[in-house]
Design a protein around this nucleic acid. Structure first.
Length: 750
DNA sequence: CAACAACAATTTTTT
DNA sequence: ATTGTTGTTG
């Protein structure tokens, strides 16, 4: 022991198992960590232990996390323990690490160091283009399915020729043809996709022993979090970097494996134990996060899984409240009852809005609570959904920056060549693209050649580009040229401002609807760019583009924001915790999702069950699970369209003494859900169409009934026969009633 | 070539 | 409900 004082400090407050995990620093270590078992604490203390007690240099430690947000949090906590030394630790995601390796040594594999990273959208559009080239109908062969198959192949380390050998069906053959074309497109565009960041790194390590040794010599202690969600390529990468020293610690929980659809391979946990002879295993089963009720309920939900970890989760925490299960008429009512309960928690239970999260299976489910929160004035923020980096205005500007950074990126150039509209239409673009492909040139080069006065490549095509378009192309290219010069001389923020100015983007945005939102997004983008202002001109641009490609909405989520309720998918919620959690849409068809039920694959249902388990174990004190008996799909309640088939089977596995069931009781209890006058008009502009017929009432309408008095419409459905409407009204002091429009004579009072 | 209308497809989950 | 795609018109 180099430092016994540090040793004592670091082990203080840890339980026996946690101490063993922190102190086992030599050789392979597997930490099975249940939810809320102090996993992050163990990892950070283990890092500090390595440095302060074992005297390991921080530079030789690498910790890999699942998201950038997790990396950031871990960095902060290590900073607290180690101070300035902490900055020398390598901390990030697999994709981060891969990108860094390839920026430095990718040229060995023939990769341009200026490579751009293509996201899912761009991958799909390349697939679509390839299909069109082969005269295959993208409607018949879905680009997503093919893209997914290509990704699966890459995750199994199958190159196109190897994949061809495995082809079993006609679909596989199509995939293979597209795969070949797809790889060529990426090469031509000097681009890599997400999978390449991992795959090419492993290929590089395999083909160049010197490079691999550089990393092996540098990193002597490796830690990987969320091991149950790693894939085969990540497994290989980890083992290669760990090398013979094999001081590799992986942390995971098979019960929280929820990314098999992204080719995560749960057998990595088994393989780890099998591939390492003397692997040590530590089980962290004690939960410090949640109440007794929540832990027991979560246990009973995961129990039916055939494939599960035998790790028993337990807690000494007080039993706490029962889990609140509530039945609601439809998703609007579900959202209103959640909103009412939130107000109670905030006003009477001393919780802040920021202590509360709404979790759901699909992004589309955020809409109803969002509307309810707007109406009741509850502050909220949505994570994910229409992701920031995928918004049109953001992608447009990013595409400009990408073309400036890497002119070979023809995909980005196609995207922006006529945005804002400058008279370079589809006809011109397809002529140019055709020519580019015929001569194996980049689009950029083709355009340059086309407009050059004394160009040899003048498009000699019969359908020559007209002089007018040519003139526009000239103007466009000279503008790009100016911007490229600015990029090499000024910082990235100045470049961005000049870009906005040059293309008159503000004016363009103002002509569109929701222009305020769009402009806000651009300002947010600008503020993200300003983080790279101090870098040297080209370096700043490159670093910013990389972070833009690899960051997610979740990464932006930090505690500095205003006090607000968090709306988040169950997947994204992994690793987070909140004092109060509402899991909405606890219905068959939603959780488990219809797709997993229809697949007929028991393994898919088991994954849904784990997802439910992950959600439940995010809650510290209070957990609510809500059901809507009617749910709209694609905006209407037409008979047969509702995807709900009753409460989730997972709910039925929770012992009844752990739950308290409320059927609309929060409304019956007399909580006033009527709207503030001012918010009334938010809903009046909504379409009154329901199933083709015009609905007489809108959610939010104030109405009067002869017997029940004043109330607010919380739902209006067309009846199964389609000749009437069933109106659900919350009456002041009378509770919620369902009435037929034709006989109730409701008066809109406004 | 752009602006507008009509239409279809969409919803699992994301580094 | 909302988004993107396709076809028609000015």
């Amino acid at each position: 022991m180099l430092n016994s004082k540090a040793n004592e400090n670091l082990l203080e407050g840890l339980n026996e198992e946690q101490r063993i995990a922190v102190q086992s620093v030599q050789g392979p270590l597997l930490i099975m960590a249940g939810p809320g078992s102090g996993k992050t604490r163990v990892i950070t203390h283990r890092i500090a232990y390595l440095v302060q007690v074992m005297g390991v240099s921080p530079a030789s430690i690498m910790a890999v996390t699942f998201t950038n947000k997790a990396a950031k949090e871990m960095q902060e906590r290590v900073n607290q323990l180690l101070g300035s030394q902490a900055s020398n630790i390598t901390l990030g995601t697999f994709h981060n690490f891969g990108a860094r390796v390839l920026r430095q040594y990718g040229d060995i594999l023939g990769i341009d160091k200026q490579f751009v990273i293509y996201d899912d959208d761009e991958q799909k559009s390349i697939v679509k283009q390839s299909l069109e080239e082969f005269s295959l109908d993208p409607k018949q062969y879905s680009p997503s399915a093919i893209n997914n198959a290509i990704s699966a192949a890459k995750n199994k380390m199958l190159r196109p020729n190897e994949h061809a050998a495995h082809a079993k069906s006609y679909f596989d053959e199509i995939v293979n043809r597209v795969y070949v074309r797809y790889e060529k497109a990426l090469l031509d565009n000097h681009a890599l996709d997400f999978d390449d960041l991992l795959l090419k790194t492993v290929l590089l390590f395999q083909s160049d022993q010197n490079v691999l040794e550089k990393y092996q010599n540098r990193y002597k202690f490796l830690m990987v979090d969320e091991w149950q969600d790693t894939n085969k390529v990540q497994y290989l990468m980890t083992r290669m970097v760990a090398g013979d020293s094999n001081n590799l610690c992986v942390v995971g929980d098979p019960n929280q494996s929820i990314y098999s659809w992204r080719h995560a391979d749960i057998t990595n946990i088994l393989d780890f134990e099998n591939d390492n002879e003397k692997v040590k295993t530590v089980n962290l089963g004690r939960n410090y996060r949640s109440t007794g009720s929540i832990v027991s309920a979560a246990q009973s939900v995961i129990a039916p899984n055939a494939n599960k970890s035998d790790l028993q989760l337990w807690t000494d925490n007080p039993q706490g409240n029962q889990i609140g299960v509530s039945y609601n008429y439809n998703e609007q009512e579900e959202a209103l009852s959640v909103a009412a309960e939130i107000e109670t928690l905030v006003n009477q239970e001393n919780l802040r809005y920021g202590d509360i999260a709404i979790m759901y299976r699909t992004n589309a489910q955020s809409r109803a609570p969002e509307e309810a929160f707007v109406r009741s004035g509850i502050p909220y923020r949505i994570i994910g959904g229409l992701r920031f980096w995928e918004r049109k205005e953001v992608k447009d500007l990013l595409s400009y920056l990408r073309v400036i950074h890497n002119p070979f990126d023809s995909l980005s150039l196609s995207r922006i060549i006529n945005v804002p509209a400058r008279g370079i239409g589809q006809k011109t673009l397809s002529l140019l693209n055709g020519w580019a492909q015929l001569n194996d040139l980049s689009l950029y080069k083709t355009v340059t050649d086309t407009i050059g006065e004394h160009s040899q490549h003048q498009i000699s095509n019969p359908n020559e580009i007209n002089t007018r378009s040519k003139k526009q192309l000239e103007l466009f290219m000279s503008m790009l040229g100016r911007l490229t010069t600015i990029a090499s001389e000024s910082d990235v923020l100045q470049l961005f401002d000049q870009l906005i100015e040059s293309i008159q983007y503000k004016k363009y945005i103002e002509e569109q609807d929701r222009s305020d939102d769009r402009w806000d997004n651009i300002l947010e983008l600008r503020s993200a760019i300003s983080d790279y202002q101090d870098f040297a001109p080209e370096v700043g641009l490159s670093a910013f583009l990389e972070s833009a490609a690899l960051s997610t909405d979740l990464d932006q989520m930090d505690d500095s924001g205003p006090d607000a309720v968090t709306l988040i998918t169950l997947h994204q919620a992994k690793g987070l915790e909140f004092p109060a959690v509402f899991m909405i849409g606890m219905e068959e068809g939603l959780l488990p999702h219809r797709r997993s039920i229809d697949s007929g694959d028991a393994a898919e249902i088991e994954e849904e069950r784990r997802l439910c388990y992950v959600g439940m174990t995010r809650a510290q004190e209070r957990l609510y699970m809500t059901i809507a008996t009617n749910r709209s799909m694609y905006g209407n309640y037409n008979p047969g369209m509702s995807q709900t088939v009753g409460p989730s089977r997972f709910l039925k596995d929770i012992p009844s003494d752990l739950i308290s069931i409320e059927g609309k009781s929060s409304l019956k209890k007399g909580i006033d859900i009527s709207l503030p006058e001012s918010s009334n008009n938010i809903l009046t502009n909504q379409s009154r169409k329901r199933g083709g017929k015009t609905s007489p009432y809108n959610t939010g309408d104030h109405v009067k009934h002869k017997i029940f008095g004043a109330g607010v419409v919380v739902g209006c459905l067309i009846t199964p026969l389609g000749n009437d409407f069933e109106v659900t009204v919350a009456f002041k002091g009378q509770g919620v009633k369902r009435l037929l429009a034709s006989i109730s004579n409701l008066e809109i009072s406004d």
